[in-house]
Every structure is written in structure tokens, then in C-alpha cells.
């Protein structure tokens, strides 16, 4: 009981006495499988309440890192702490303070949604008198309250995933780990899953650590670690990452591009003459549009601001595009969903 109280406080003001305590921290974390160095010398910190993403292609070492942080794999080198507990020395304490959503489904689909949650509540030592209230609360957070008495075998892939997120939050963890939570789901369902994840952060104050290989999803994170071949190649907020690979470009299609180019250059802007437009390279392009039009002082019939995307960032740091893998991964997700539903 005392442990549960500590746990509740732990998640609400994790280390209130020491504001510097990270929700997750890793220093020189490594994992070797035989000859393969699956994770090499990874260091990072996640602040309480942050949404932190590991972005990388299939085989980059994302799941291996998560498994070490969740005490499912012992690190080969380095150290890590979650919610203030050392993953190697205090695995039981770590497990009490984390919620887990794995890449593959781990629900019992012969049980109802509520039964799955009740089972989890016992496994994670939620006090008996709080179980009903917590089950109602998490089901409401993922909008599955009206399906609580239905067998999970009748759930769609997206509903099952959202139920898993609800279940992982049942015991008010300090950190919620999600390994590719949206893989194999259609775009609308992915958006729903993201709403659920962010709602958990806002309403339950949980820290989110997730992995993904979808570029567009990493945008939801406050900070992104790009991981490739087991190592972090870049780590920053989405905007800063985009900045780091190049500035914004603003294309202006004007009544007289030659004049516009001359005037902008004279005003000190860095300008290129494009095909039917002048292109200005600048930081924070959107904020500069009005000023640029003012300097050009010409009728403008087209404006296009281009900011480097995470695709550009990924290409810049790894020399490859992550894109190629989408088709294959989505397919394998669907095959998995099919298998899971077959029994």
C-alpha cells in the first residue's frame, strides 16, 4: 500500500525534491548480440512530462533499447535509469513505475476488455479498492467505455492497440514506453492512437518514450533521437533538427522576378533565381513572407514556403531515406493482425 502511494506521487511529481531527476536517462548504453552491436554507446535524457521519440529504420536498435530500459534485456555496457531507478540493479522497482506497449499485441483476446484490465491491475498491484475507478478512467481516456464487456477478439486492430495503451496506464506509471505503437494501422487510426497518447501525457502527466519509423509521427514528439545502426546520429526538437540540415526557402512568383531579385539582394537577402520564381533562403521563412513581399514591392501571385522535412533530416544524417520500408512494414503489420485474429 505504501508502495502504491509512493508510486502515485512518483508519477505526479517525479522527484519534486530534485527537479533535475530525469524520467529516463541513459549513459553509454550498449547491447551486443554475439558479433552484432545492436545498440552502441547511446546517451540521452528524457525530462518528466516530455514526449520523446526514437526514430529509425527497421533493425536500427529501437526495440533493443526499449527492452533494456524496461529491464527485459540486460545492457552489455553503460547504465540507464527509469523513474529514478537503475535498470540493472532495481528491475522490480523500474517495472512498477513503467507502462509498456509492445510492438506485437499482448492482450488475451478470449477475455473482455475489462477482464484484461482487471488482470493487469492485479499484476501491477493496484489496490483492490481503486481498481474499478482506474479501469473506468483509462477506458474513458481511450473512448472504449462502451466496449468494456466485449471480448477483445471482436476488436479491430486500432481498438486493441488503444486498449493496450489504456492498460499500460492503469497503474499510473511514471513513464509510458510504446514500441512502434502505430505500425500496421491505417492513417485515421494512427491519428486516434496519437490523440490517446497525448491525452495520457496531458491528463495523467506521464512521460512518453516511443519508437517509430514514421517520419510524420515523430513530429508529435518534443524531442527526437534519430537512431541508425544502433547509434544516435542526431538528437533535438523537430524544428531544431530541420534547421540543422538547412534553412527554409521562400519562393515568390512576382510580376517581374528580375526586379524582385535585384531589390531583395540589395536589401541583403540571400536570393536564387528559379524557374518562374525567386527563391529566398532564410531562417523561419513563414515569419519573413510579409517583409519579403514588402521589399519586392511588386504584385505577387504565388508564395511557397518550404521547410526541410524530417525526411530531409534523416537523409542528411544517414545518407538514406527511411521511406523504402513503409510498404513492407505495413504489410507485415497486417499479416500479424491477421494471425492474431485467426484463432
Amino acid at each position: 500500500m505504501a508502495q502504491w502511494d509512493g508510486l502515485l506521487q512518483g508519477s505526479a511529481d517525479a522527484g519534486a525534491g530534485e527537479a533535475a531527476v530525469a524520467a529516463v536517462s541513459a549513459r553509454g548504453l550498449s547491447k551486443r548480440f554475439g558479433d552484432l552491436l545492436a545498440v552502441r554507446d547511446v546517451s540521452f535524457t528524457v525530462a518528466p512530462g516530455e514526449v520523446f521519440a526514437f526514430l529509425g529504420p527497421n533493425g536500427a536498435g529501437k526495440s533493443t533499447t526499449i527492452n533494456m530500459l524496461c529491464t527485459l534485456l540486460l545492457p552489455s555496457g553503460g547504465a540507464a535509469a527509469v523513474a529514478g531507478f537503475d535498470v540493472a540493479r532495481q528491475p522490480a522497482a523500474v517495472r512498477r513505475h513503467i507502462g509498456l506497449v509492445f510492438q506485437d499485441q499482448t492482450l488475451d483476446d478470449q477475455l473482455t476488455a475489462e477482464e484484461n484490465l482487471r488482470f493487469h491491475a492485479v499484476l501491477y498491484h493496484v489496490p483492490a479498492e481503486r481498481v474499478a475507478e482506474r479501469i473506468g478512467r483509462v477506458l474513458e481516456l481511450v473512448a472504449l467505455g462502451d466496449r468494456r464487456r466485449d471480448l477483445v477478439s471482436t476488436f479491430s486492430g486500432g481498438m486493441a492497440r488503444r486498449l493496450e495503451i489504456a492498460r499500460a496506464m492503469l497503474h499510473t506509471p511514471a513513464v509510458l514506453f510504446l514500441d512502434e505503437p502505430t505500425v500496421g494501422l491505417d492513417p485515421q487510426t494512427r491519428a486516434l492512437v496519437w490523440e490517446d497518447v497525448l491525452r495520457m501525457r496531458d491528463e495523467e502527466g506521464v512521460t512518453i518514450f516511443l519508437t517509430t519509423h514514421y517520419m510524420d509521427e515523430a513530429e508529435y514528439a518534443q524531442r527526437i533521437a534519430i537512431i541508425d545502426h544502433g547509434g544516435i546520429v542526431a538528437l533535438d526538437g523537430p524544428d531544431a533538427l530541420k534547421h540543422s540540415v538547412g534553412e527554409d526557402t521562400v519562393e515568390l512568383a512576382t510580376a517581374d522576378d528580375a526586379v524582385a531579385e535585384r531589390r531583395l539582394r540589395a536589401a541583403g537577402w540571400q536570393v536564387r533565381r528559379g524557374d518562374g520564381a525567386v527563391t529566398v533562403v532564410t531562417s523561419d521563412g513563414e515569419a519573413q513572407v510579409a517583409r519579403l513581399i514588402g521589399v519586392a514591392a511588386l504584385p505577387v501571385h504565388g508564395v511557397h514556403v518550404h521547410r526541410p522535412t524530417l525526411d530531409d533530416v534523416f537523409l542528411h544524417y544517414t545518407g538514406r531515406q527511411i521511406r523504402e520500408e513503409h510498404g513492407e512494414r505495413q504489410l507485415s503489420g497486417r499479416v500479424r493482425a491477421f494471425h492474431a485474429r485467426r484463432r
Binding site: 530534485e18 529514478g84 537503475d86 522497482a93
Partner: peptide, 25 residues
Amino acid sequence: MTVPLRAGPALVADQSPSLGEELRT
């Protein structure tokens, strides 16, 4: 930035489940 690795909740031992928790499981 230095990373405090084992600060956090004042807890030295690992939190093994109690007998009551085990029986409930």
C-alpha cells in the same frame, strides 16, 4: 548536462512483491 542516474525516490532496495501481492496474483 550531467545525468543523475540513481537519485529519485529515496529507495535503496529493489521493490520485490509482498506475499499479499503474490497471493493476489
